[in-house]
Computed example of a mutant assay.
Amino acid sequence: MEASIIKIGNSKGLRLSKTILDKYNIQDKVEIILEKGQIILRPIDSPRKNWENEFKKMNENGDDKLLMTDVFDDENLEEWT
């Protein structure tokens, strides 16, 4: 399949047909992968899909602990007043 590059303001873009958008379930965003001289477009259906379930698993496994405290030991909060 061949597609033309079109001018969009000061940029250029690629127009995808409705058939391609529907077939690959492309909604608003795609992931762009540059690999071995190729440009790969991968649909993004939901950037945070399944995060809620993964956070629940982390909590159940005790993996949701803070790695850093909110305040560093050598932090001087007086500088900000």
Rank of each mutant, 00 (worst) to 15 (best):
E2Q: 08
E2R: 05
E2N: 07
A3V: 15
A3W: 01
S4L: 09
I5N: 02
I5R: 04
I5E: 06
I6G: 00
I6S: 03
I6T: 10
I8M: 12
G9C: 09
G9W: 10
N10V: 05
N10Q: 11
N10I: 06
S11M: 13
S11R: 10
K12T: 11
L14H: 01
L14D: 02
L14K: 01
R15K: 12
R15H: 05
R15I: 08
L16Q: 04
S17H: 07
S17L: 03
K18M: 04
I20H: 03
L21C: 15
D22G: 06
Y24K: 09
N25Y: 03
N25I: 07
I26C: 06
K29P: 00
E31P: 00
E35V: 04
K36C: 07
K36H: 14
G37F: 05
G37Q: 06
G37K: 05
G37A: 08
Q38F: 01
Q38D: 03
I39Y: 02
L41T: 04
L41Y: 05
R42Y: 01
R42Q: 12
R42L: 07
R42T: 06
P43N: 07
P43M: 06
P43Y: 09
I44S: 02
D45T: 08
S46M: 07
P47C: 00
R48I: 09
R48Y: 11
R48P: 00
R48Q: 07
K49Q: 12
K49R: 08
W51T: 05
W51P: 00
W51S: 02
N53H: 03
F55E: 04
F55C: 03
K57A: 13
K57R: 15
K57E: 14
M58R: 14
N59H: 12
N59L: 08
E60K: 15
E60F: 08
E60A: 15
N61M: 12
N61W: 08
N61A: 13
N61P: 00
G62D: 08
G62N: 09
D64Q: 04
L66P: 12
M68C: 07
T69G: 15
V71D: 14
V71N: 12
F72L: 14
F72E: 13
D73V: 11
D73L: 11
N76G: 02
N76F: 04
N76S: 11
N76L: 07
E78V: 13
E78N: 12
E78Q: 12
E78C: 01
E79N: 14
E79C: 01
E79L: 15
W80P: 00
T81K: 15
